[in-house]
Design a protein around this nucleic acid. Structure first.
Length: 410
RNA sequence: GCACAGGUGACCGAGUGGUUAAUGGUAGCAGACUGUAAAUCUGCCGCUCUCAGGAGCUACGGAGGUUCGAAUCCUCCCCUGUGCA
């Protein structure tokens, strides 16, 4: 089995499920912190573990340029390199087609980038992206796609979608032929020497009475990574539908919806997600890439999305924006200078349990490195707790509380 | 006391006769951030009004003066730094 996916509870369209990877289980709906350059910026790996992150992202383009995927392979793969024994998903570089649009040229063959680091030229193709992601050793590999810009004319969105479909096929062909070449190979969970990697709070409680979570799970752990296809289609519902259908025909163990949150309205984002979800198989993980604000990810989870990632909690934290149960607060604002409350009075994270807004503001205003660290830890705690409360709500069969934002995060 | 060098908006610091309310930094105030070229970027930053296009006032140590016009030139005064007594 490439990527065991078991749905344990449902509430409306939302599903509580468990994905088993060679590097541990993932309870979904899940939020995946972004660790582009083999680090979730400002957060040590052990803290990510404590916060309950089961899977984080890495980036093909960035890690290929520095330190280089062959070096990472030589050093035992990305998990070992960065000392992260839980699951990893690598983005294919498709988003950089969008974000580095000034530095690249797209052809049928692939995308040639001029490195943002030193200006040198590099050709990324679906095959190359797969090779790099396999060398890095991701548990979940993303097909190489073209993240369509917004706005895009219908014809442009269609051509982009078609290109992504052709690249998806090439990605899959190369991936299937080489997926055994990961640095971790057939090394299972048993040899990782990791702590409690096999169990999660949800799976432990959901499987009461059964064998210890780890033992049963080890049986059918994947021996190779899984490749996800990506739905594109711009902001056109019929193209999204067609993209979803034709991507499903290629048959992947999981599907992503990409090309969203690129400038369109939130209503449009929802519409595109809903459209794709109608087509994507319900018995496989469904991942919306690059979203969103806390209210948004709750919303999408309620619609049946299983996985999401976003730089927002980490980047905004480094810029002084904190997400809390009472809304967003810009910690650098003068009104917090003497505020002795924790960042979020309803949050039990290590930052909120220990520090005041006044202190965090001082750190930020003083440009102390600790400001970004503490802010990021809180924001990730808030996101991960939010998803935890969503999962809990699914087991109770009622998402109205989390959707209205009135649910406690503990 | 003498000789140099200086005194510019909260601070540092350009400008040395006219598009100068005055370049830049810093500090301050606010905003943005969605598969990370982001610990980044943007706006405001003398005062008072404003139909938001502007209008009026006050400003370059102090007081006079020259000039159509002065932060910029002249005189005196005050203050700071360095050196010599």
């Amino acid at each position: 089995m490439l990527l065991p996916f078991s749905i344990q509870a449902q509430a409306g369209a939302a599903r509580l499920s468990r994905i088993d990877t060679a590097h541990g289980p993932i309870d979904t709906p899940t939020f995946m912190p972004v660790g582009t350059a083999a680090t979730v910026k400002a957060v040590p790996q052990d803290v990510l573990e404590d916060l309950g992150a089961r899977i984080i992202l890495g980036n093909t383009y960035h890690l290929y340029l520095r330190p280089g995927h062959e070096l990472v392979r030589k050093l035992g793969g990305l998990h070992k390199f960065m000392s992260w024994e839980r699951a990893l998903l690598t983005d294919s570089g498709g988003f950089q087609v969008f974000s580095l649009s000034e530095l690249r040229k797209v052809t049928e063959e692939g995308v040639s980038f001029r490195s943002h680091l030193d200006g040198t030229s590099h050709l990324f193709t679906p095959e190359r992206s797969m090779e790099i992601q396999i060398a890095l050793g991701a548990d979940i590999v993303m097909a190489f796609d073209e993240c369509t810009e917004h706005p895009a004319e219908r014809d442009r969105a269609r051509r982009s979608m078609e290109l992504t479909l052709r690249w998806a096929k090439r990605s899959k062909d190369y991936f299937e032929a080489h997926k055994q070449e990961t640095p971790w190979g057939d090394r299972g969970i048993g040899t990782s020497g990791n702590r409690d990697i096999g169990k999660t709070e949800e799976s432990a409680s959901a499987q009461l009475g059964s064998a210890q979570p780890g033992a049963a799970a080890v049986q059918n752990l994947p021996k190779a990574p899984a490749l996800f296809g990506i739905v594109q289609g711009g902001m056109y519902a019929d193209l999204r539908r067609e993209s979803a259908e034709r991507t499903v025909e290629l048959d992947f163990p999981g599907y992503a919806i990409g090309g969203l949150s690129v400038g369109e309205s939130r209503e449009k984002t929802m519409e595109m997600i809903a459209t794709a979800l109608e087509i994507l198989p319900k018995d496989k993980p469904r991942y919306v890439m690059g979203v969103g604000y806390p209210e948004e990810i709750v919303r999408y989870a309620a619609m049946g999305v299983d996985m999401m990632d976003c730089v927002l909690p980490t980047r905004a934290a480094r810029h002084g924006l904190l997400f809390t149960s009472e809304g967003r607060l810009n910690i650098k604002n003068a009104r917090f200078a003497q505020d002795q409350n924790p960042p979020d009075v309803n949050c039990k994270c290590r930052v909120c349990m220990r520090y005041t807004r006044a202190y965090l503001r001082h750190l930020f205003v003083s440009a102390e490195p600790l400001a970004g660290i503490l802010n990021t830890i809180h924001n990730l705690a808030y996101y991960l707790d939010t998803m935890r409360s969503v999962r809990h709500a699914i087991t109770l069969g009622d998402l109205t509380g989390v959707l209205s934002g009135s649910v406690s995060l503990t």
